[in-house]
Amino acid sequence: MRQIQKDPNAGTFQFSETALGEIEKIYARYPAAQRRSALMPILHLAQREFGGWLSQEALDFVAEFTGIAQIRVYEVATFYTMYNLEPVGKYHVQVCTNISCWLCDSDGVMASLNGKLKQEFGTTSDDGRFTLVEVECLGACVNAPMMQINDDYYENLTPEKVSDIIDRLP
């Protein structure tokens, strides 16, 4: 069960000007009477704006901002795994280990990351640089094995390639 967490360091929240412009465009996509449809896109945006995860305080802000009941916002945030309910590293490394990737040695990719970063899966490094997680199929199965780092896919991986990709991250 995915749980919502409070953030002891939460300050006040405010969408940036660019985000507010984006939100206006989001609302325009749905019929005027169906503003709740904008909740998922606004949560995506909030996560980007507010440090990569959604604390209870951030969710409460979104509820207030959209006029949607808190409980409805919590329901959505906990249902969908892309809404991070705890802080994630600067690089969110997600390795697919579902069937096609597993057949093509996703174990090797995981081992390579373990060795390279000296870090277990399911953890975030102390310096906040990397979060490593195993995920389900990401829809790039013919280019297995693969991983996603933040918004980008890295496909046809080998242990050497993985190491290279990590080295090249800014």
Binding site: R29, Y30, M40, P41, L43, H44, Y80, T81, M82, E136
Partner: peptide, 9 residues
Amino acid sequence: AVHRGAGAY
């Protein structure tokens, strides 16, 4: 319009 999901099969 495009509507993005958020990770749920």
